[in-house]
């Protein structure tokens, strides 16, 4: 089994940093495109963690999970962009808060 060139801890650190960046973006951005992008960042951060873990224990499961996440992300982007188009058409804006129709 081939050893990992980078220690596992470092990879996990990068992955959690990426995850936090994505999460922060999710929480503070108002533009829907950026929100979707932050979401991608978070998905990829977790995918990175899977890959690293799979390599560390020499198991194929990590890569399988990566493929799954990739396809989920692709599907999500397809649906998400479709929604973004609709939001843009209806509200003439990409601001998340403009699309709020609740009165509570």
């Amino acid at each position: 089994m081939q050893e990992l060139a980078v220690p596992l801890n470092h990879v996990l650190l990068v992955s959690s940093l990426l995850f936090c960046i994505g999460m922060l973006g999710l929480m503070i951005r108002r533009n829907i495109i950026f929100i979707l992008m932050s979401l991608e960042v978070m998905l990829n951060a977790s995918a990175l963690a899977f890959i690293a873990a799979g390599a560390h224990w020499g198991q194929p499961d990590g890569q399988i999970m990566f493929m799954l996440i990739l396809s989920v992300a692709a599907a999500e982007v397809a649906v998400g962009l479709g929604l973004v188009l609709q939001v843009q058409r209806r509200f003439k804006s990409l601001d998340m808060d403009d699309a709020n129709r609740m009165r509570g």
């Binding site: 999460m23 999710l26 929480m27 503070i28 108002r30 929100i35 998340m96 808060d97 709020n100 129709r101 609740m102 509570g104």
Partner: peptide, 16 residues
């Protein structure tokens, strides 16, 4: 019901 504002960012923040 006060927390049901419809603002996505609030929801995400509270989830986090």
């Amino acid at each position: 019901s006060v927390t049901q504002t419809g603002r996505m960012r609030w929801y995400i923040a509270s989830m986090v």
